[in-house]
Computed example of a mutant assay.
Amino acid sequence: MRTVYVNGEYLPETEAKVSIFDRAFLMADGVYEVTSVLDGKLIDFEGHFVRLQRSLSELDIAEPCTRDELLEIHRELVRVNEIHDGLVYLQVTRGSDGDRDFVFPNPETTKPTLVLFTQSKPGIMDSAASKNGIKVISIEDLRWHRRDIKTVQLLYPSMGKMMAKKAGCDDAWLVEDGFVTEGTSNNAYIVKGNKIITRALSNDILHGITRAAVLRFAQEAQMEVEERNFTIAEAQDADEAFVTSATTFVMPVVEIDGAKIGDGVPGAKAKRLREIYLEESIKAGV
């Protein structure tokens, strides 16, 4: 049985409770972060903490604790749950003043809710998907327009993954005004020649922590990076495609809407970037 963290307490998961009036439950009024654990180390904790601060600030939710306190909670959960490879999920909500209301509760009298739990994922670095690549479909992007805030509003991304599953694929790329925004839970890329192409940061996409690291490693490896919009047709004509996220790292995409990408197998640049990312991230892990 896992030990989880709820508002200052480490508890068995069966004893963890949050109010039914919590605004995350009633209004999806909360944000989250997922930090990978590799070889027992937290990967890019600092980046996730900075993005958490930004998300909370954009929604005017108070920070529940300091950076150092949050790091200690992460480390303790990794320790007590004996996580070697896996993740730590963190969620901060606006909390509740005891009843349902569209108006925000008084921040002076209402504390945010802080919840963390771990998931063990043995073999996450050497998954079959990373060796074979994944297949994606394209769907219309119907999400709200502040995708840069990592909120718990995940119903449509979840529906997108189910659409992909029903189509015999692994994931979906979201399309708005004719251009790919991102995947359901990841940033999207194509490769043409030596150039890696991905959508520029804006309110339209999540500012991926893994994205930032991978693009930095790509440039250090003398790969050209171009941040611009691209279409599904352009992706189908690319040499390679891949996605990045905290839990899939660099994941090759080998098929989009039934069309093979390149030779239909993981491309050399995606595989190399995955190797670099894992090696460097574990070195820098805390």
Rank of each mutant, 00 (worst) to 15 (best):
V6E: 00
V6T: 03
E9W: 00
P12A: 11
E13K: 13
E15V: 05
S19I: 13
I20H: 12
R23A: 07
A24P: 05
M27T: 01
G30M: 07
V31P: 08
Y32S: 06
S36I: 08
S36A: 15
L38N: 13
G40Y: 03
K41N: 14
D44T: 10
E46L: 12
G47W: 01
H48P: 11
R54K: 10
R54C: 00
S57T: 07
E63L: 15
C65P: 05
R67T: 01
L70I: 09
E72R: 14
I73A: 04
H74L: 06
R75Y: 00
R75D: 05
E76F: 02
L77D: 06
V78G: 03
R79G: 00
H84F: 08
G86V: 12
Y89Q: 07
V92R: 03
T93A: 06
S96F: 04
S96P: 06
S96N: 06
G98D: 09
G98Y: 11
D99N: 13
D101S: 14
F102K: 06
F102R: 07
T113R: 05
V115H: 02
P122Q: 09
I124V: 15
D126E: 14
S127P: 11
A128E: 13
A129I: 03
I137V: 15
I139V: 15
L142R: 15
R143N: 08
H145G: 06
R147V: 06
I149C: 01
I149K: 02
K150L: 03
Q153T: 12
Q153W: 04
Y156E: 12
S158L: 13
M162T: 12
A172T: 11
W173D: 01
V175I: 06
E176V: 08
D177Y: 13
F179G: 00
F179Y: 13
F179I: 07
S185W: 04
S185P: 00
N187G: 02
A188N: 02
Y189I: 09
I190Q: 00
V191F: 03
N194K: 13
N194R: 13
I197Q: 02
I197R: 05
I197G: 02
L201P: 01
L201K: 08
S202Q: 11
L206S: 01
L206G: 02
I209H: 02
T210Q: 04
R211C: 01
A212C: 00
A213V: 15
L215Q: 03
L215I: 10
Q219I: 09
E220I: 08
E220C: 04
E220G: 11
A221P: 05
A221H: 10
M223D: 00
E224A: 11
V225R: 01
E226L: 12
E227N: 07
R228N: 05
R228K: 14
N229W: 11
F230V: 07
F230H: 04
T231R: 11
A233F: 10
A233Q: 14
A233D: 15
A238D: 04
E240H: 04
T248K: 15
V250N: 06
V250M: 07
M251R: 11
V254P: 08
I256A: 05
G258N: 11
V265F: 09
K269H: 10
I276V: 14
Y277F: 15
L278A: 05
L278Q: 14
L278H: 05
E279H: 14
I282A: 11
K283R: 15
K283E: 13
